[in-house]
């Protein structure tokens, strides 16, 4: 338990460090929202000062940072420069869809890659292994946007079976058919997301399984003539899970980052798209808010992974 609380403290420390760095980086950037010429050129300097005072930009950097940190604890991330809406509102509006997409694809990738990775390792250097490995390398080197464009080209433009973009059909639907319609729109984005992240997981799991197969305990178990099923259930999978769960916990930021591209192609109004638009218009409060929330989610994923590992560890049960 002490280890766990240490880890928690370490993660908190990480979060503070990340927020400080992003804050500094953003304020050290040469062109701010106000100097970018996005405001009326006829504006008097006094008015500009007043506007800056409203956003708290006239204070010293340290003061601004401390204000921001204090506000975060009350879930107040400030106001968007562009839309004038609360940052937390803007983000909360877009968080569910991005999280849903990521969590679904994470689960599918987890199951598929464990199955395929173990299968490849058990058939080391045989046909199944070579095919699975080629598929994995193929998925790894496929740019997500290219695959998305090809799928749009094939399924939406040539065959006209799947919707090209967006989340809902133009005519509004209610009740159950609303969700079916949404699922229909999510088929393409989800399959691209899953396929693109599958490759590295398969390769990783395959090499982990090969290590297990080489080990003494596996050799001993096999010489006891245990059945394949038992070997899989008691020797391979339990030893495979810890590193895989850790990796999945770590891969959350990459997935959300990767959804920037996919969300912009498929016109999904999620966090990635919001981040992209805010980065283009230098809407700092939103950029900061999203960075902090994704870092927080990553840390949460980490903690969750650690808790799960403790639960899975048979030594913990005994003690």
């Amino acid at each position: 338990m002490k280890q766990f609380s240490n880890k928690l403290l370490y993660l908190l420390f990480m979060l503070v460090l990340i927020s400080a760095i992003t804050f500094l980086a953003i304020h050290a950037a040469p062109n701010s929202f106000f100097s970018a010429g996005e405001l009326n050129p006829n504006m008097t300097p006094e008015a500009l000062e007043k506007l800056k005072a409203i956003y708290g930009l006239d204070k010293s950097l340290l003061e601004q940072y401390l204000d921001w940190i204090v506000n975060i604890f009350t879930l107040n991330f400030g106001i968007s420069f562009v839309s004038g809406a609360e940052v937390s509102e803007e983000i909360l509006k877009r968080l569910p869809i991005t999280l849903t997409l990521n969590i679904i694809s994470l689960i599918v990738v987890f199951i598929l890659s464990i199955y395929l990775g173990i299968k490849a390792a058990l058939n080391y250097e045989k046909r199944a292994d070579i095919i699975i490995r080629q598929v994995a390398l193929f998925s790894f080197s496929m740019p997500s946007f290219y695959l998305a464009l090809l799928m749009i080209l094939f399924f939406s433009i040539t065959l006209e079976v799947l919707p090209i973009a967006g989340l809902h059909s133009i005519e509004p639907k209610v009740g159950l058919s609303y969700y079916i319609d949404m699922a229909w729109h999510l088929i393409m984005p989800l399959s691209v997301m899953i396929f693109v992240s599958l490759g590295s997981m398969i390769i990783y799991i395959r090499s982990l399984t090969l290590e297990i197969l080489k080990s003494d305990y596996y050799y001993f178990a096999r010489s006891r003539r245990l059945s394949e099923k038992k070997l899989l259930k008691f020797y391979i999978i339990p030893n495979l899970l810890p590193p895989v769960i850790t990796l999945l916990g770590l891969s959350l930021p990459g997935l959300i980052g990767g959804s920037v591209i996919l969300e912009s192609i498929f016109g999904i109004e999620g966090m990635g798209q919001l981040f992209y638009l805010s980065a283009l218009s230098r809407d700092y409060p939103i950029i900061m808010g999203i960075l902090i929330i994704t870092s927080f989610l990553t840390l949460l994923g980490n903690i969750f992974a650690d808790a799960l590992l403790l639960k899975l560890n048979p030594y913990m049960k005994r003690g």
């Binding site: 930021p253 959300i256 920037v260 980065a279 994704t294 870092s295």
Partner: peptide, 17 residues
């Protein structure tokens, strides 16, 4: 620290400046 940062966000943030 670098791993917890969403890499692509970092890229985007840097490139936009």
């Amino acid at each position: 620290l670098f791993l917890t940062f969403p890499t692509f966000f970092l890229l985007l943030a840097l490139v936009s400046y």
